[in-house]
Design a protein around this nucleic acid. Structure first.
Lengths: 355, 355
DNA sequence: CTGTTAGCGCTTTCAC
DNA sequence: GTGAAAGCGCTAACAG
């Protein structure tokens, strides 16, 4: 039914090998021959058989991008940026950049990794925070090891460096991960809280992300570090998921735990939006009664009313860089690890405490 | 290096054929034998070679989901829902649901379709509005035809039915598309504008989406139909892209074209957010001076201040259904086409015109 | 620059 | 219920 490379060869009166060579463009072929082959391809409406070529070449043109939540622009922005650097690059053989949504589930993360391994993926990019469960971390590390062995380039984006288990003896190889782009969640969070402290806030509630996640922990740590340095006692802290509903509920709980709160720091912008809604519903004005701050600086944060004070993470740039790293189009940073810093964006949702 | 099926066979002291059979679970194998094979698989840490198996079986377990903008939750929600119905279904052989971001570019849409065809994808889901360029539409239809011929199940989600070219003679096959889930953009838009008319608005500006897109046209048509029925003259209309920036700029332009506007209808919620920002910056209050309405009812719309009046599209449900349809887990609707309706959500951003 | 020759690792009749 | 054998369609040496 479908035309094969042999059909093309016959029609162009050349050998299959020659057809393969012009298709892959990785070998000198006479212009006239190439012309003839290309015409035959066109006339037969021929499309290369991916599985066959992957099998023979022992590598595929699939690049997997794992995200925790595809409906969250935090991941969408990174994934889209990475994809734009991978797909349709002129010259090189077209790569198929695909995003896989783990939904934050460890099992699905492992399943996707296996599926990608099965497809002999050329590269895998893991985005966003990791689960801190040791068992799962080991399983992921092992899977990545096998992927890397099979030739896949592994890139971490917005995720802390892989901690290699075993004796921590001096110099050791970078492990299976080719490059890591880690976000300075701790530092960003710290600066954010320092900003609040500078505005006079002393009773600060914290709506944290899901427990056992690196992102959650690092942001909390930065917050606490700022408080400690200032000699201010930590306010109430409630965990939740990364959605507005969770921000809403958690803020209500925070208010219950400490009605004298003057500021709420949220795990991210989405959560902060929920926090704002809860405060409004309680009749509190932002920032006059309570200041609110988020994290990430997603596009909608500017449009919140009042606009959200937050920490801007260069998600697009980081995603694009991860994509280039995965393609080997950019040199790996020294030590294999680069830290991406956030920028404090002070906007209307935070203000001085009342006199 | 990597273990092959033959290795597993040797270790389990059975033939490769038997290993294949237990792995695919599509053939009777003695319990004891299966047990032995599974153990060998485990011990060798064996992972099936996808390309090899796809080549031999002439079909792969890849399912592609095409989206116009992965950073837009409109697509993220649908894609995530579809993926959850496809990936990791117990029993059946694990499928790899992957999302491909076209960025709204026709070339990339075609490229991804070719890449998916090359991989011998088991199914392809196209989400969101289509470009109305006849040439491109024909190219896409042709590609889908070839994909379908090769055994891929094609599902359209949130996209109008494929119009088959050629003589429109009576009964004709459904074409390459197995099922179409189309959104009633026209109807939803119409009800939204009727709502505005009922509130007394007569000068309504419209921020439309990108030109030459089905979604854009249908929403505009519904809006105009409502106006026509009410004998109200259309207000100014400006085209833009589906982002907040575009909504901001377009709204300013609308205000310039007609300073007496009392309402602005936006192409979608994101655009509406930009519109709100523009109005506020102009010192106009919502909805006292100008009412604003969006479309889609994305999660953040409830949190806008005031909360956005919009048309709720059941994106998650539609995406999930598309996923099931792609897997053949759900019967195809009669005629292959099902219309998904939107629900008018009246919230704070629209109000009566001033007396 | 081009043709020949082996497989790549798996599935699938067809026998037993 | 299990094994043997013949490819699936392509790439990659290796010659020429």
């Amino acid at each position: 039914m479908t035309a094969t490379l042999a059909d093309v060869a016959a029609r162009a009166r050349v050998s299959p090998a020659t057809v393969s060579r012009v298709l892959n463009g990785n070998y000198p072929v006479a212009a006239a021959t190439r012309e003839r082959v290309l015409r035959a391809v066109d006339e037969l409406d021929y499309v290369l058989n991916g599985p066959a070529s992957s099998l023979a070449a022992a590598t595929s043109d699939l690049v997997g991008i794992l995200v925790n939540d595809i409906a969250d622009p935090f991941f969408g922005i990174m994934a889209g940026a990475a994809q734009s650097e991978i797909g349709g690059g002129p010259g090189a053989r077209e790569k198929l950049a695909v995003v896989c949504n783990t939904g934050g589930s460890p099992e699905r993360e492992l399943t996707y990794l296996t599926l990608l391994q099965r497809q002999r993926a050329a590269a895998v990019i893991l985005t966003g925070g990791a689960l801190e469960d040791p068992g799962h971390a080991a399983a992921v590390a092992a899977k990545l090891g096998r992927l890397a062995e099979a030739g896949a380039r592994i890139v971490l984006c917005g995720r802390p460096p892989l901690v290699l288990s075993g004796a921590g003896t001096g110099v050791r190889p970078a492990g299976p991960v080719a490059a890591t782009l880690t976000f300075d969640n701790r530092g960003g969070s710290r600066r954010l809280t320092e900003h609040l402290l500078a505005l006079g806030h002393r009773r600060i509630g914290y709506v944290a992300g899901p427990e056992e996640r690196t992102t959650t922990r690092h942001r909390v740590e930065g917050h606490l570090a700022a408080l400690t340095d200032a000699g201010v006692a930590p306010g109430p802290l409630v965990h939740g998921s990364y959605d507005r509903r969770s921000g809403y509920d958690a803020t209500l709980e925070l208010l219950r735990l400490d009605p004298s709160l003057t500021a709420v720091v949220a795990a991210n912008d989405t959560v902060a939006l929920g926090a704002c809604a809860a405060l409004r519903d309680r009749g509190l004005s932002i920032p006059d009664d309570v200041s609110v701050a988020g994290f990430d600086d997603l596009p909608f944060s500017t449009d919140a009313v009042p606009a959200l004070t937050t920490v801007r993470l260069p998600l697009y740039e980081a995603g694009a860089r991860a994509g280039r790293l995965a393609m080997g189009k950019e040199p790996v940073p020294p030590g294999g690890i680069a830290t991406v810093h956030g920028e404090l964006m002070v906007r209307g949702s935070t203000g001085r405490t009342r006199a």
